[in-house]
């Protein structure tokens, strides 16, 4: 188990390096630079600016500087926000984004998995059909449709909840954004839980367990649940990426001061370090969640541990 974990951590670092490298050069491929729009500045001033930020050096040198900065935990200065470090910008937005995403993912799993399992156990009965309809609907409803519609119905028409805003994540403000972000993830986890349990229930070892007279509850709890969770667990890594993506939209729709806006804003402004910072931080988050999912997989399935 230790060797397995160690190999995965090394793989994670390599992947991260690959990600940083690819992102660094792709961003620089773009025409234009961070100081293009400030047309009034003199060429001399502009050259000074570029020198101050190290943009006059060859790309490879810049890359080496950036990576060595990263190793020291430094994401560099923002090019657009004067005298602000990228880490300060993200430090303000990330806690908001993180709590939004974590709440949505937790809600999705806590509701989706039981829903999927119940649907599987009630196969082809009313609950199962109702669940399938709900799942299909939630998958088809993207955050940028669901968010505005929820905000319109519950915020503007019914006036039950605030239509937008965050207010430091107080419950009333959090309900609609978290619901919007959670809905598709909830649908996916319910679907995976349902098919996972159905597949396991049809397997030989479940029939063998029934032949031992163990009773439905014991069979489901002690024999079927863990293997039924496997597809769900291997989806968790992508799920985190999925929720992070959705949070970009949800933060825009509800005007939440998270970190998501820095990505679009940074990319449009050619604020290289800000975009890189977003990619590094969100990349690390996803990769860590992937690692956690992998380790959980190993715990659920003893056959993986020895590999």
């Amino acid at each position: 188990m230790m060797r397995y974990a160690l190999a995965r951590i090394i793989g994670l670092i390599a992947t991260l390096l690959l990600l940083v490298t690819a992102a660094f050069f792709v961003i620089r491929l773009a025409p234009g630079g961070p100081f293009d729009e400030e047309r009034t500045i003199l060429p001399q001033v502009r050259a000074n600016l570029e020198a101050a930020y190290g943009l006059d050096a060859p790309l490879t040198i810049q890359y080496a500087r950036y990576v060595s900065g990263l190793l020291r935990g430094d994401l560099g200065p923002s090019f657009k926000h004067k005298d602000v470090r990228v880490s300060e910008l993200l430090g303000a937005g990330l806690p908001v984004s993180a709590s939004l995403g974590a709440a949505a993912l937790a809600l999705a799993l806590l509701c989706g998995v039981p829903l999927g399992f119940c649907a599987a156990l009630q196969r082809a009965r009313v609950l199962d059909h109702a669940a399938s309809v709900l799942i299909a609907l939630m998958i088809a409803l993207p955050a940028f449709v669901l968010g505005p519609v929820l905000s319109l119905v519950f915020g503007l028409w019914l006036r039950w909840l605030p239509a937008a805003g965050w207010n430091d994540g107080s419950l009333g403000y959090a309900v609609l954004p978290v619901l919007t972000l959670a809905a598709p993830a909830l649908a996916y986890s319910a679907r995976l839980a349902r098919t996972g349990l159905l597949e396991v229930l049809g397997s030989d070892y479940i029939r063998a367990a029934r032949a031992r007279g163990l009773g439905l509850r014991r069979i489901v709890v002690a024999h079927a649940l863990r293997p039924a969770l496997l597809p769900l667990v291997s989806w968790l890594g992508p799920a985190v990426a999925f929720v992070l993506t959705g949070s970009l939209i949800v933060e825009t729709v509800f005007g939440i001061p998270g970190a998501g806006r820095f990505l679009v804003e940074g990319a449009l402004n050619r604020d290289y370090t800000l975009v890189m910072g977003m990619i590094v931080v969100y990349g690390v988050i996803t990769l860590l969640c992937n690692l956690a999912a992998d380790l959980a997989y190993g715990w659920l399935d003893p056959r993986v541990r020895r590999r």
């Binding site: 397997s203 030989d204 070892y205 029939r207 063998a208 002690a222 024999h223 293997p227 659920l300 399935d301």
Partner: peptide, 11 residues
Amino acid sequence: FQDPMSSLTPH
């Protein structure tokens, strides 16, 4: 049963 490989719960 026939298949001992798949008749025991793996975990």
